[in-house]
């Protein structure tokens, strides 16, 4: 428990260090012309970094929303992180029991949600890596030797929570970038009718595409020179090969997140089924 408290303390210190909140409400003439800017950045969370920019909402309104989300995000990361040694998933994975074991209500809820995506993607997206993992009605989990991996889920889920918080607080103009692979575009750029986002080529060279996003999200999956073969097919156990990317745009960040992984693995014959399961999503493939 001590180590976990220490973890939160460290994480908070990190936030404080990189907080770049620009709007202080001091109301000088110059600031009245320009919209208020609130920027926050977490250098290390869920294996990557999270950056957020709100435009035109006073600091006093954005900050408490951010703070509440931050606490929620830290809980989530601690629970789902496979490598921290103390979280629920890390502990389950460390001793993958053949027997059924009780899991917490929050994790059970996430597992049910993840399993529903397993259904909707025809098994292409699976936090249990294709193993017959089951969860009983009274939250008992049977791993049967499998391990859980919420990569490709957690960031999308976090962004969904974040989207709901922004909405509830009436923050209508913001851009959230979760490691480049998960982007939430709230409203539009203050000087344009959307947020324009370039898809970068991890193998070098300029952007390969541009998306115009407005009240929607974008998720990108694929191989990169430093990070290749990490998307593994649950049925075959084989990694997605090739210099490829898939970007998925969907109103729900979790849909986009799950689909970008599923599409990296989908055979051409499986695309139609995915398309009818997610009618609101749009995707583009890139061969690099």
């Amino acid at each position: 428990m001590a180590s976990r408290r220490q973890f939160f303390k460290d994480a908070l210190a990190a936030t404080a260090a990189v907080s770049l909140a620009a709007a202080d409400g001091s109301g000088s003439a110059r600031e009245k012309e320009k919209p208020a800017l609130f920027q926050f950045s977490l250098p290390r969370v869920m294996g990557t970094r999270l950056e957020f920019l709100a435009v035109g909402t006073p600091d006093a309104i954005v900050r408490p929303v951010w703070d509440a989300f931050y606490a929620e995000l830290m809980e989530l990361d601690a629970m789902l992180n496979r490598f921290n040694g103390y979280g629920e998933v890390a502990r389950l994975n460390a001793a993958p029991s053949q027997e059924d074991v009780p899991v917490s209500e929050p994790l059970a809820a996430l597992l049910r949600l993840a399993f529903s995506y397993r259904e909707r993607t025809g098994g292409l997206f699976d936090v249990a890596g294709g193993k017959p993992v089951t969860l009983s009605a009274d939250n008992r989990l049977t791993l049967g030797g499998a391990t859980l991996d919420f990569g490709g889920f957690a960031k999308g889920y976090a962004l969904r929570l974040w989207r709901d918080r922004l909405r509830a607080a009436g923050i209508g103009c913001a851009f959230t970038d979760f490691g480049g692979s998960s982007i939430l575009a709230t409203g539009h750029h203050p000087y344009g009718d959307c947020w324009k986002v370039g898809v970068t080529n991890p193998y070098g060279g300029g952007p390969v595409d541009e998306w115009s996003l407005r009240d929607t999200s974008l998720s990108t999956s694929g191989n990169a020179p430093s990070y290749h073969g990490h998307i593994v097919h649950p049925r075959t156990g084989l990694p997605a090969e090739g210099r490829r990317l898939v970007s998925v745009c969907a109103p729900d960040p979790l849909d986009a997140e799950v689909l970008s992984t599923a599409l990296m693995l989908a055979a051409p014959s499986e695309e139609n089924a995915l398309a009818s399961a997610f009618p609101e999503a749009v995707f583009r493939r890139y061969s690099l």
Binding site: K34, L37, T220
Partner: peptide, 26 residues
């Protein structure tokens, strides 16, 4: 990319943010 966006908004410029791609790792 994010720094650029910040600077753009501050300077009143609307342009593309080159940021989407496979997840950034430290």
């Amino acid at each position: 990319g994010m720094r650029r966006l910040y600077d753009q908004v501050r300077d009143g410029i609307f342009a593309s943010i080159p940021t989407a791609g496979p997840s950034w790792r430290p």
